[in-house]
Nucleic acid binder design. Structure first.
Lengths: 116, 116
DNA sequence: ATTTGTAGTTACCCAATAGTAACCAGAATA
DNA sequence: TATTCTGGTTACTATTGGGTAACTACAAAT
């Protein structure tokens, strides 16, 4: 899941891309935003992600210091995630991407759909 | 290479991540920058990328309107790439990522290396 | 006694991605 | 005549990614 050639590069930009340059992480960071959120919520809010992949991505984000994980010793278990200072500092970049996209995206021709 | 679920999402942010959210594209865009560059140069400047993958990524970037490709009908062939307006507009975002990384990166412990 | 709920983990398997090597055109150069 | 040069493409293989389903713990509710 993580490309060692990127993470161990001596180019800081390449290393940065190694940590956040995949399709799930920006989505996850964006969904969390400034709130505290539970695993199950993430799982149900983010479309098409499996619990397995979600777990992996969250683990990596935590390892890279973007995310804080708070596990309560309860049953049934409760785990809360929230962005660290580093993660929060990444949010404006995601906003920039949104603006950039809004300005330049070539809007795809919407699929023919049957509404009943 | 391209995840249809992302590109066809009705969420613009998800679509944006679908186009630039992978490890090679930010690297390629960053390497091109404001200059005009040839295929062979890209291939030799970017570490670890294979010609096959480079070709695929360039093709997608062109399809998504980030890149302009200029092929000269010569032999041996000459092909030049440069960023479009959309591509150029993405450069400041890459700069933001560099700043963000410089500020927050947890520097990896350098590997034990033998210098002779 | 059985079901429900949470946040995972694990095993298994198929699909997608990426690496490698060989090959192409055809003009210019040795 | 053989080699070099460029920007690819193709076939084949290896590696990885990711989906699915089953399973865990244990308390509380039915």
């Amino acid at each position: 899941m993580r490309d060692e050639r990127f993470c161990a590069s001596n180019c800081p930009f390449t290393r940065a891309i190694g940590t956040i340059g995949n399709k799930w992480k920006p989505i996850i960071i964006n969904v969390i935003g400034v709130r505290t959120i539970r695993f199950g919520q993430l799982d149900s809010i983010i479309p098409h992600i499996s619990r397995k992949v979600l777990t992996e991505q969250l683990k990596e984000l935590e390892e890279d210091g973007l995310l804080e994980r708070l596990a309560y010793k309860e049953l049934p278990p409760r785990v809360e995630y929230k962005l660290s200072e580093k993660g929060l500092a990444f949010l404006p970049i995601l906003d920039n991407i949104k603006e950039w996209n809004a300005k330049y995206e070539i809007v795809p021709i919407p699929e023919e759909t049957d509404y009943k």
